[in-house]
Design a protein around this nucleic acid. Structure first.
Length: 822
RNA sequence: GCCGGGGUGGCGGAAUUGGCAUACGCGCCGGUCUCAAAAACCGGUCCUGCUCGUCGGGAUGCGGGUUCGACUCCCGCCCUCGGCACCA
């Protein structure tokens, strides 16, 4: 009986499809549900083994949960809108739709050939009108609630992709996709008001017990909540005030100047009568033209110009100069800050350069002679701070804030780093924003009944920096939904992250033409029990999805606050120390692996190569080990045939110590493998334990004293394949039938262990003297401590190692070891 | 700079959470089978010393500490990978 993997794989894939193993309805609710979601792919090119890990992990979970008796939902779809399709189209003159669908076809075929189980009747494709109709519908809902708005904004623009990028898509001042240097541009853009949900997005992270800590921390940092005080600084000779946000109000007595960002709304008003107006104007101009990316350079130098104006420090009454400075962020806080050079490195740098006063107001609690730093940024005790001197920073923050509120100087405030989500894209291949511009009525939303706003085909989309749809007359011209007059459509399309922020809901009602999803069904299936995907989505996709979910919660369309109960982020597969990518030429294609070793070997190796949440180095040689193992396991079946065994289920009393051993190993393996599955998906150790069980079976049957009941042996072999089924399903299904199984192995229950086989009667303990194992001793499990000590001390080896010294103490750790202290 | 992950044989990686370090797999060495090779199977494989044993010493990035006992806990460093980065 040879292991003909090619035949086996085809046969069972066809069978699973025929019996609809992964097809589930929304109606029957007799079983517990389990929604296992794998992040859907962007269909750009065919998948390599690095991508495969994601789907294989998901499939292992799905099959395991099916065997545990859950009603498992495992859907798949395509994140099909996006830039690469359009770039390809420009380059090779293939319509984006054609390119995208070719890729979808190929990837789908790959997933099927790997035996990954999906309920394909729920398939969604975000570039289909039946899908983006609802993406547009969500836009209308957000617009209705004032959460989608348009504003002129300084935006990140990629000159290579000729489009606007979200802050999140700018990495080190470069475009996330093409690495071109991003520039600033001022454009009218659509935003989603995600900041309205900042507090809840932060607060509800607490509900996500089963998310990796690091992902939650990343989101927390991204939201970037900080508490502080907004202080109004009066200006000498002006009748308006400058408001500053600070988290360190305890340092207010050390504030020796103010600094405003050049784009500060009051900057113009402030400097219009300054004697050095020309200089100031030039400076503002210069800063405006500085690309944001330059700020990230190490060499970026703080610069500023004195406005000639003075503000009053409300606590000291001192007149302090007001500056315009290039290091003040317009978008954060109030765009103006009070500067405390003694206790802020940046302010210090600036003060040194322009010779501004530095006044120490915080003393470190435990001063250290090693402290040579001119700037102390930590907390401590206040000095030179009037009535507040002597307080600790924490106390002072409280008391000064109170004082300011009482005297109308300032009030407590909270700030977030999170920005609103810029969703406009000046590109073709995306969902059109359902908005119409009318001369009479202004910005008018398309009515729901007119959705979808169809994306026209056959469009000339050269990158011009303008939306390609601008040049499509039939699209552009329309009637105003309000007054019926001639009007124009919005020609920007939506960021693809909008598409992917709700796809997991559409799977539930993928065929519904009346609404985006059926709330009742969605409330049954969701929240997602297990979400699986790469860490690269830790911030963007997961934050946007959480936001949209909360919005739907507020609309009463879903009854859960968070969409994903558990999150698993798998590590990357690297080759030669680098991420697999076509440009690096280090991609491993699954095809030749499958041809040589089969799908089950590939799946097994990918799961065996290391803990799935960590990055792992691909080694072709590793495959051979898994291939050998599968062949070896398969050969066990010959044994059953040779011995003319028929699978039976009952086992009588074990008849030999070999048999007892084997049963123990068997039940121990079940226990351990199940634990590994239930834990953090420790497939690698689960598989190694199944390997051990197979090794043990071979060892036992090769033992000269081999005396074993056939039922025990069959039971052991059956268990090997049951445990293996989630990882290498095809060989497991084949083996199951050879062993006499009538129905699919996936209709079989996941094995359970019996504690009675795990009870030890005799133990082998290690005897440790001076930190090393010096002897081993076999004792009855119920031996008394006294008895054991006597036995151990009488051992020849122990006496030898003690060399006449008498032991100070003998420590017995039950079932483990004996430590003799001298 | 801040936050987080990690550092264990020639390699991928285990270690019941403070209790026998190096499971499982790869590679390598030796053997069986073969005209031969492949496949398969059996045995060996952390380093080191010697009197080659049921022997001794050393080893989990480095240096200290707690403990009968530390890969695991504490303190101080080094390296590496990821995230954020002038956020007041």
């Amino acid at each position: 009986m040879s292991y003909n993997f090619k035949e086996i794989e085809k046969k069972w894939q066809k069978y699973w499809e025929e019996i609809g193993l992964f097809s589930v309805d929304n109606k029957d609710r007799s079983k517990s549900k389990y929604y296992c979601l794998v992040m859907f792919p962007y269909p750009s090119s065919e998948l390599h083994v690095g991508h495969a890990r994601n789907y294989i992990i998901g499939d292992a979970v799905v099959r395991y949960k099916i065997m545990q008796g859950y009603k498992v939902l495992s859907p798949m779809g395509w994140d099909a809108f996006g830039l690469p399709a359009e770039n390809q189209a420009i380059k090779h003159n293939i319509p984006p739709r054609v390119w995208t669908y070719n890729n979808i076809r190929r990837i789908k075929q790959q997933l099927n050939s790997w035996g990954i189980g999906y309920d394909w009747k729920r398939e969604v494709t975000t570039c289909e009108p039946s899908y983006y109709k609802w993406t547009q519908w969500f836009f209308l809902k957000l617009f209705e609630k004032g959460l989608a708005y348009k504003k002129k904004a300084e935006v990140n623009f990629c000159p290579s992709c000729q489009t606007v990028l979200a802050n999140e898509q700018v990495i080190n001042g470069q475009c996330e996709r093409c690495s071109a240097e991003v520039v600033q541009k001022e454009l009218e853009q659509w935003f989603f008001k995600i900041t309205a949900y900042a507090e809840r997005l932060l607060e509800d992270l607490k509900l996500l017990e089963h998310w990796p800590e690091r992902v939650k921390i990343m989101q927390e940092n991204w939201i970037g909540r900080s508490e502080g005080v907004e202080i109004d600084f009066s200006l000498k000779g002006k009748d308006f005030k400058i408001r500053c946000f600070t988290t360190r109000v305890d340092t207010i007595f050390g504030a020796t100047f103010l600094a405003l960002s050049c784009e500060h709304p009051l900057a113009g008003e402030l400097i219009k009568d300054s004697p050095n107006f020309q200089e100031l104007k030039k400076f503002v101009e210069k800063v405006r033209n500085q690309p944001k990316s330059a700020r990230l350079q190490e060499s970026f130098e703080k610069e500023g110009v004195f406005t000639g104006k003075f503000a009053i420090n409300p606590m000291t009454g001192e007149e302090i100069p007001v500056w315009l400075a290039n290091y003040i962020l317009t978008e954060y806080g109030t765009g103006a800050i009070m500067c405390v050079p003694a206790h802020d490195r940046r302010d210090y740098e600036f003060a040194k350069k322009y010779n501004l006063p530095i006044k120490e107001v915080i003393k470190k609690l435990k001063a250290n002679s090693k402290d040579l730093e001119p700037v102390y940024e930590g907390e401590g005790v206040l000095v030179n701070s009037g009535n507040f001197s002597g307080l600790t920073s924490a106390e002072a923050k409280e008391k000064i804030a109170l004082y300011m509120e009482e005297h109308n100087i300032g009030k407590r405030a909270v700030n977030y780093k999170l920005r609103d989500w810029l969703i406009s894209r000046q590109r073709y291949w995306g969902a059109p924003i359902p908005i119409v511009y009318c001369k009479e009525c202004g910005i008018v939303p398309v009515s729901e009944k007119d959705l979808p706003v169809l994306l026209p085909e056959n469009v000339e989309f050269k990158p011009t920096g303008e939306s390609p749809l601008n040049f499509v007359e039939e699209f552009l011209k329309c009637e105003c939904p309000k007054c019926g007059q001639k009007a124009q459509r919005e020609t920007d399309t939506m960021d693809t992250f909008v598409d992917s922020s709700w796809y997991y809901l559409r799977y539930i009602s993928s065929q519904d033409n009346e609404k985006p999803f059926d709330s009742e069904d969605v409330n049954y299936w969701l929240p997602v029990d297990q979400y699986i995907g790469g860490v690269e989505h830790a911030i963007l996709h997961l934050m946007y999805s959480r936001f949209i979910n909360k919005f739907l919660y507020d609309l009463g369309l879903v009854d859960f606050k968070e969409p994903f109960k558990r999150l698993f982020t798998q590590g990357m597969i690297v080759k030669d120390g680098a991420k697999m990518s076509k440009s690096k030429g280090n991609v491993v294609s699954p095809d030749y692996i499958i041809d040589r070793y089969g799908v089950d070997t590939m799946r097994l190796y990918i799961l065996f190569m290391g803990p799935p949440q960590k990055d792992a180095e691909w080694q072709d040689e590793g495959l051979t080990g898994c291939f050998r193992f599968l062949k070896r396991a398969f050969r066990l079946l010959e044994l059953v045939k040779d011995l003319k065994l028929k699978p039976q289920s009952s086992i009588s009393q074990p008849q030999s110590s070999e048999e007892r051993d084997l049963l123990k190993k068997l039940h121990f393996t079940i226990k351990e493998v199940t634990q590994d599955m239930e834990g953090d998906f420790q497939f690698n150790t689960a598989i190694s334990k199944i390997m051990e069980l197979v090794n043990e079976i071979y060892k036992k049957i090769q033992s000269p004293h081999f005396k074993i009941q056939i039922n025990t042996l069959t039971e052991a072999i059956k268990t090997v394949f049951l445990l293996l089924a989630p990882f290498s399903p095809h060989i497991a299904e084949e083996a199951w039938r050879i062993l006499g199984g009538k129905d699919s192995i996936f209709k079989e229950k996941w094995p359970e262990y019996d504690e009675k086989y795990l009870v030890e009667e005799e133990l082998e303990l290690a005897v440790i003297i001076k930190g090393k194992v010096r002897a081993r001793v076999k004792v009855a499990a119920n031996i008394s401590e006294e008895e054991l000590k006597n036995k151990v001390l009488s051992l020849e080896k122990v006496k030898h190692h003690l060399k006449g010294e008498s032991p100070k103490k003998v420590i017995y750790i039950k079932n483990k070891l004996v430590n003799i202290v001298v």
